[in-house]
C-alpha cells in the first residue's frame, strides 16, 4: 500500500494533539502509512476564504506543491473542505489556476492529479471487516452520537463525502468496533466554528442544541472527526454550565480515540486525559478502561 501524504492541520500540534496521536497509532495498527507533508502551512481555514478567495486557493496550492504524494489525507474537516474546494475550483477554472500559480510559484505541481481524503474515508475504505478483525476490546454497551459537522459533508457537490443530512461512514466504523451508534438528528448541524472567539454566545447556543440532541438520543459520548467541532463541543460545556446552568457532562471524543480503544491502543497514547470533559468515568462504567 502506498503512503498517504498526511496533512495534520494546525490544531494537531496544539489543541488537538490527542487527535494527531490517536490518528497515528490507529493508522499504524491498521497498516495505513502516513507521511507528513514536510513544512506544511496553514490552509487558511475560514478567515482566508472569507476575505480573500485567491489567498485561500494559494495556501492550499502551496501545500499541494509541498506534498510528497498526490493522495492526501487529513483528519480536520475544515482543512479537508478547504483542500477539496480549492482543488475543485482550480480544476474548473484554468485562468484562476494560472493566477494562483503565479502567486505560489510552485515547483512540483504540474501534471499532478491530487485527491484529498478525510481520515474517516481512508479508514472506511480500508474496510469495516478489516477494522472488525483487529478489535481486541469491543466497545460493547457504549452509545455513541456520531457528529460530522458541516464541512465534511457540505456542499455535497464538491465534497461527495456522504449523505449531507444523514451521513453513515463514522456510524459504520463506530459500529464495527462494537459500540452502538445512536440515531439522531443533529449529525451535520453547525457548531458555530470560528465564532468561538469573536462571538462565543453563538457557539454556546448551537453547541447546546447539538449536545441536547445527543443526550436525548441516549448517547453516552459524542464522537467527532474535526478539531474545531471537538473543542467547541467539549470546552464550551464549561461556559454553558457557567452561564446557562445546564450541565451536559457529555464527553466528546475523536473517533480515532474510540477506534484506538477498541484496537487495544493504550489509554495514555490515546490521550483521554487531555479532553476537557473526562470520558474515563463513563468508559470505566462500561468496563472499557
Amino acid at each position: 500500500m502506498t503512503a498517504y501524504a498526511y496533512f495534520p492541520g494546525c490544531s494537531a500540534h496544539g489543541t488537538a494533539k490527542e487527535y494527531d496521536r490517536s490518528t497515528q497509532s490507529v493508522c499504524a495498527k491498521l497498516g495505513i502509512e502516513l507521511e507528513e507533508i514536510p513544512d506544511w502551512v496553514c490552509c487558511g481555514a475560514s478567515p482566508a476564504h472569507a476575505v480573500n478567495h485567491l489567498l485561500s486557493l494559494a495556501l492550499v496550492a502551496k501545500n499541494l506543491d509541498l506534498s510528497p504524494s498526490d493522495t492526501i489525507v487529513t483528519g480536520c474537516a475544515a482543512c479537508y473542505n478547504r483542500f477539496k474546494t480549492a482543488i475543485h475550483a482550480l480544476q474548473h477554472d484554468r485562468p484562476l489556476w494560472e493566477q494562483v500559480k503565479q502567486i505560489v510559484q510552485p515547483t512540483k505541481l504540474n501534471g499532478r492529479d491530487f485527491r484529498v481524503f478525510h481520515l474517516l474515508e481512508v479508514i472506511h475504505e480500508f474496510g469495516l471487516e478489516g477494522v472488525k478483525e483487529r478489535v481486541t476490546k469491543p466497545l460493547k454497551g457504549l452509545k455513541v452520537a456520531c457528529y460530522y459537522g458541516c464541512l465534511l459533508v457540505r456542499p455535497p457537490k464538491v465534497m461527495a463525502f456522504d449523505d449531507p443530512d444523514n451521513p453513515k461512514k463514522m456510524d459504520e466504523l463506530i459500529a464495527a468496533v462494537g459500540a452502538e451508534p445512536v440515531e439522531w438528528e443533529f449529525k451535520t448541524e453547525c457548531c458555530g466554528a470560528f465564532h468561538a472567539v469573536p462571538h462565543p454566545e453563538i457557539v454556546l447556543r448551537l453547541t447546546s442544541n447539538i449536545l441536547r440532541a445527543a443526550k436525548d438520543a441516549g448517547a453516552d459520548v459524542v464522537s467527532v472527526a474535526c478539531p474545531m467541532c471537538q473543542i467547541n463541543l467539549d470546552l464550551r460545556q464549561l461556559d454553558i454550565q457557567k452561564r446557562h446552568k445546564v450541565t451536559f457532562n457529555m464527553p466528546v471524543l475523536y473517533f480515532t480515540q474510540l477506534l484506538g480503544l477498541a484496537l487495544g491502543i493504550s489509554e495514555g497514547e490515546l490521550g483521554f486525559d487531555r479532553l476537557i470533559i473526562d470520558p474515563r468515568p463513563i468508559l470505566r462504567e462500561k468496563g472499557l478502561v
Partner: peptide
Amino acid sequence: MLFKGKLPLRPSRNGAIVRKIFDAL
C-alpha cells in the same frame, strides 16, 4: 488548556512560506 496539554509551547517556523504568498498577493 495548558494543564491539559492543549496549548503548544513553541510556534512553527514556516512563516516565511506564508509571507511570500501574502507578498505576492
